[in-house]
């Protein structure tokens, strides 16, 4: 059994600055969460906050347990609302993009 699933995570629209100013990240995510449930996007978000984010400004990414309103999440280039939002179960090779709409234009 694979213990980890490898996915690609991209931060854009200004979120890069919370993640070492790096846009593309390769993440090897535990295949199951601490409760033994398959890793979903909610788990990924938690994982990113705890393990990848370098900035202290966590609330610019997560608010009240979910991604801050105004940040779009794309799962394999589709709105996460179409994919089950944070309950979407991640598969190896998935591409998850977090785009902030909160910055000036």
């Amino acid at each position: 059994m694979a213990d980890n699933i490898d996915i690609k995570v991209e931060f854009t629209g200004g979120l890069e600055m919370l993640f070492s100013d790096k846009r593309n990240h390769k993440i090897s995510l535990p295949a199951v969460d601490s409760d033994g449930q398959p890793a979903n996007v909610a788990f990924l978000i938690k994982y990113l906050c705890e393990n990848v984010m370098k900035s202290q400004k966590k609330d610019l990414f997560v608010l009240d347990g979910s991604v801050r309103p105004g940040i779009l999440v794309l799962i394999n280039d589709a709105d996460w609302e179409l994919e089950g939002e944070d309950q979407y179960e991640l598969q190896a090779g998935d591409n998850v993009v977090f785009v902030s709409t909160l910055h000036g234009g």
Binding site: T12, L72, V97, V99, T101, H103, G104, G105
Partner: peptide
């Protein structure tokens, strides 16, 4: 919608700059 503007930029792969003004 701002969401759609961002998605339009994303899907058309437009090159834009996004950092808040440092004095804002």
């Amino acid at each position: 919608y701002e969401k759609e503007i961002v998605l339009y930029a994303h899907h058309k792969k437009l090159d834009y700059f996004s950092t808040e003004c440092i004095y804002s």
